[in-house]
Nucleic acid binder design. Structure first.
Lengths: 251, 251
DNA sequence: CCTAAATGTCTATTGATCTAGACGACTATA
DNA sequence: TATAGTCGTCTAGATCAATAGACATTTAGG
């Protein structure tokens, strides 16, 4: 409809929006790489081509590519072109039996989980409601960051009923997995009962934990897991680096 | 953990990242409004306070507030302060039986669906794969925008197998609902078989359709619905205005 | 009625971003 | 070994983003 642009498929970027053109273009190219748009050549189109596609100066495209090179996503080789080093976006499956490491298994070679902190606190309103406990009940809080092949993928804050799982913190520290820590305390199976997802700009803490650049997006998933009898055993708040992840809902 | 900032809670913003300070600040304030941080007064803190909190000049804060006023989120009144006009996020449930209007029922008074365009096209690779058809098969494409209480919430592109649902476009135009259009063509029930979710910055078209301000985020859900025999009947690509919506996964 | 506190407007200056053009350096291929 | 195609670097100027300070205007409250 409306106007039909001729020739070189014009990819629009917006000016005067508080987001620099080079950053908008970097975001678009990162997305295109993730979509496999350049798989045929394994390279990003030449700078001059990109510049005319986006309707900007070649220097602006170079700034965008420099940012992507900084991320380790591409590598420019003089005389040849700009090679794609890594294709982004890991798929994270969400199902009734969601297990962090399991789902990522084949997509990344190495999964890392780092425990940032743990403490016992009294459940605030939302945590208590999610876990079906009276407000103020003791809960174990775990803060973790998970990464795939060295890149941070998600930052999580989890809450567990302290009375039922008093050793949660120690067991997690020892085993490095929520599923295993549950098993060590007599819970062999649990199911995802609810997940809420919002997308927003990352705050300062998230930028640091996930090694993101400002303006980056996080997908925040609020999830409740329950045992087979339906009693909540975990409430978690996971922030995913949106440009590295895709969520798949399996129903 | 680590360092504890003292005094006037310094809210950090990052410089030289391609995202203007005023936009970072606008994003932070929008988030704070959504979190209910200013509910006590119904107002945003004074410009001078915000300026010192973020460690920037008052003019920079004014640019941020001007952007939020443009969105209709706040309204500045000389001599009084900056009033919060609106704070919201509609929840969109995703389950095996996802129906657009149903889930929003009690949250918004009035649901609007606008048909932007319809045509019959040959299925491209991804569409064909999702619908389980040979590439190039005829499919009906519908483009719609849905809104709640007058504000656009989502923009959708849907594909239906043209052979099985030849009247899709006409029926949708007449009935204003995919569920009803299916029913009119003999399909009484269908289920969501897969959903993929990514978050990214809105492109130019989405900014326009969803009446967003540049730099805004969209949640993109790629979904396949199938009949009870498991045959795909719809492939849809829905872009939600992320600052107005929350997705709830029901498993 | 005055004052404090808040937003509105103006000018001037600095630094970051973007454009424009030219030319050098490297790679692959005919 | 040319030559076309591509990335690398440099200079100069225009526009946008942010700072700084001053003062006007409006509102609420003593």
């Amino acid at each position: 409809m409306t106007s039909v642009k001729k020739m070189a498929a014009r990819k629009t970027v917006e000016r005067q929006t508080g987001v620099a053109l080079w950053r908008q273009i970097a975001d678009r190219i990162r997305l295109a790489i993730g979509n496999g748009d350049y798989d045929a050549t394994g390279m990003v189109p030449p700078e001059t081509t990109l510049a005319s596609e986006f309707g900007v100066n070649r220097h602006t495209v170079r700034s965008a590519l420099a940012a992507l090179a900084e991320e380790g996503l591409v590598r420019a080789v003089q005389g040849r072109g700009t090679l794609i080093e890594r294709k982004d976006r890991v798929t994270y499956p969400i199902s009734r039996r969601t297990r962090f490491s399991q789902g990522l298994g084949r997509q990344v070679k190495e999964i890392g989980s780092k425990l940032l902190g743990q403490r016992e606190v009294r459940a605030s309103g939302d945590v208590a409601a999610a876990l079906g406990l009276p407000p103020g009940s003791p809960v174990v809080e775990l803060r973790t960051v998970s990464s795939g092949d060295g890149r941070p993928l998600s930052a999580t804050i989890s809450y567990f009923p302290a009375e039922r799982f008093p050793e949660m913190a120690q067991q997690y520290a020892r085993l490095g997995s929520v599923t295993k820590a549950f098993a060590a305390q007599g819970l062999d199976d649990y199911l995802r009962v609810s997940t809420e997802i919002v997308a927003r700009h990352a705050d300062a803490e998230e930028l640091k934990l996930l090694k993101l650049s400002p303006g980056a997006i996080v997908l925040e998933a609020l999830a409740v897991n329950a045992d087979l009898a339906g009693r909540p055993v975990e409430y978690s708040r996971t922030r995913f680096a949106a440009d590295r992840m895709k969520l798949r809902i399996e129903t």
